[in-house]
Design a protein around this nucleic acid. Structure first.
Lengths: 345, 345
DNA sequence: TTGAAAGCGCTAACAA
DNA sequence: TTGTTAGCGCTTTCAA
């Protein structure tokens, strides 16, 4: 059996409660006894039992992190380890631990959340995705359990704390950049329209196009779950149009990789034939050919901020709902190119 | 306060211990009472308090997963979410939860492990990396705490349970493939030599080269932490040699991406000028230009198996140390090309 | 400034 | 087959 608070108490010649107070660094314990107790702890190699502590204080000093169900192949996106790193960093500072759920399907995820919440395993939850009519979100709201979303909630926006970028504006900026450098035919390639992030980016794109009075045919909006066979077809169709785009706004760097590849296959090259702009500034966007012009959404910061908000909320249930918008920064690289006069139609 | 076992007991007209037994599905409780108790649980919305349970049984039904310190930029590698998915899948089946550590630096990681172990937060630990003289590994060994490594331990190989691929052989196969299709000058680009995985892959490469009696100058072995400025220089130097390689064995798909990019920059193309083989078969290796010939190491399976081993070990401390070798499978794609007669030097 | 004692919610002998 | 009871290790009133 491990060494307990009692053993320490005995060794230091005090009561268990005193030891407990020393652990909590209670100011009403004399420095003298504190020292004595700490010495005893050291000598015995004492470490508090978290479970006992949690039971007594009805909390767990742990936060749950929910990834999207891995039916979404999107899980292979380096976005996730990166937010996790941000979350972990802040959590570590605050001496919180991370509980992670990586459910196989939506049902698994839901069950995991239930286990976390009902079993008192965590003090709060961070959702790493946001989609419309999410049962998990509903459950958490009903239970009035502390949670924050990385992304934007699709409903009850003002009652839910969330950390997001201004995806609408970022997307608009990207599109305007393409317009500025002479592109008139710009298409959008995004992921599932169930995800609010896709919707925001799509709308930003549309807004810029409309304001510029450029064509916005339905065919210019493509939703490819994730690039591969399906996405490939979509891109091929896009460039088989009578008026194929010369500029592209793609919702994710990993997707962009697939798009560039598909372009090559059909004999088009980036940026010579088509300029591509993208999102996330994953590490890999610097090492692709060509390196991508992409929005740095500061994934790590998204993680840090969400952890901060959650912990605040977990410590104080009355903490009001907040919205944190992490600034973005467009990285201009070689996947975009001005339309030269002769290529202008 | 949440509803407890006592409330259920009262409602069902039984003793708390009976309720406890029903939860554990103890066979010596009559089906009748079981039904009654379960009904009461439903009606009251009862959920067991994990902390209380853990305290009583001195276990936690949770496993700790340790990522490398994120000083290693390698954390952005999709390898991690993917193993995590595998681990999570098995853990979920077995009703275990996942505790994840994503330390900022080595010290953080070490502290996290201590917290997990000493605080009884987890029943066992999975290390997602293996490097020489790792203090974490030492700590775990000394404590005789259940753990398994994804990768190969650098010492005490026979006393530690680990899940790995035959990286030596895979690397040898890759190299031999390049030799078979006519390459005579083959170089190796790998990550940190502190990592056992790098060492194995390097040795496999060397073995093939030596057996074939091909040149193996020191300059043909490059260790680039991760491709970027540093890695770029390394690659440039490699191809500035009097006898530059025409074949490449690269230790990771993400690195390969960087290598291909650097090649383009210096006016070489893959696979026309240099054939490239790689490791991991990340999703992205299918959507690069060109798609990569790479070893599918079955990341997901690595995760599943490690979780299985760990849980066995956690349940039974006397479980002997095991070694699980997950089979690999080389995916031949377009990054390799036979040397044509005229290019043969 | 410290100690005694009563829980936190659950499990597991031991009895019955 | 079920109930009684004593913990698991820690926190936290209430007293001193």
């Amino acid at each position: 059996m491990a060494v307990t608070i009692k053993d320490v108490a005995k060794k230091a010649g005090v009561a268990p409660s005193t030891v407990s107070r020393v652990i909590a660094d209670n100011p009403r314990i004399s420095l003298d006894t504190k020292k004595r107790v700490r010495k005893a702890m050291k000598e015995l190699g004492y470490h508090p039992n978290i479970n006992a502590r949690n039971l007594a204080v009805r909390s767990s000093q742990a936060i749950g992190v929910i990834m999207p169900s891995s039916a979404d192949k999107a899980l292979q996106n380096p976005f996730f380890p990166e937010v996790l790193r941000g979350i972990g960093s802040f959590a570590h500072e605050a001496e919180y631990s991370l509980y992670v759920s990586t459910g196989g399907n939506d049902q698994d995820v839901y069950e995991e959340v239930q286990r976390m919440v009902n079993g008192n395993r965590v003090d709060g939850i961070i959702l790493l995705y946001s989609r419309i009519a999410d049962p998990v979100q509903q459950f958490l709201t009903e239970k009035n359990f502390p949670f924050v979303i990385v992304g934007k909630p699709s409903e009850q926006e003002s009652e839910i704390t969330y950390v997001d970028n201004n995806n609408f504006k970022a997307s608009k900026d990207l599109t305007n950049h393409l317009i500025d450098i002479g592109h008139q035919h710009i298409a959008f390639i995004g992921g599932s329209t169930e995800l609010t992030v896709t919707v925001d980016r799509l709308n930003g794109y549309k807004s810029a196009i409309e304001e510029a009075g450029l064509p916005l045919p339905n065919e210019y909006t493509v939703h490819a779950e994730f690039l591969k066979s399906g996405g490939r077809d979509a891109v091929e169709q896009l460039f088989a149009l009578d008026e194929p785009p010369t500029g592209l706004v793609v919702a994710d760097d990993l997707m962009s990789l697939g798009v560039i590849n598909t372009l090559e296959e059909i004999g088009l090259s980036c940026p010579e034939d088509v300029s591509l702009t993208s999102f996330n500034n994953l590490y890999l966007s610097e090492i692709t050919t060509p390196p991508l012009t992409t929005v740095d959404i500061q994934i790590y910061q998204l993680g840090v901020q969400s952890a901060r908000c959650l912990i605040e909320k977990a410590k104080n249930k009355d903490e009001p709902a907040k919205r944190i918008i992490v600034p973005y920064d467009i990285k201009f690289r070689q996947s975009t190119k001005s339309m030269t006069p002769e290529t202008l139609r």
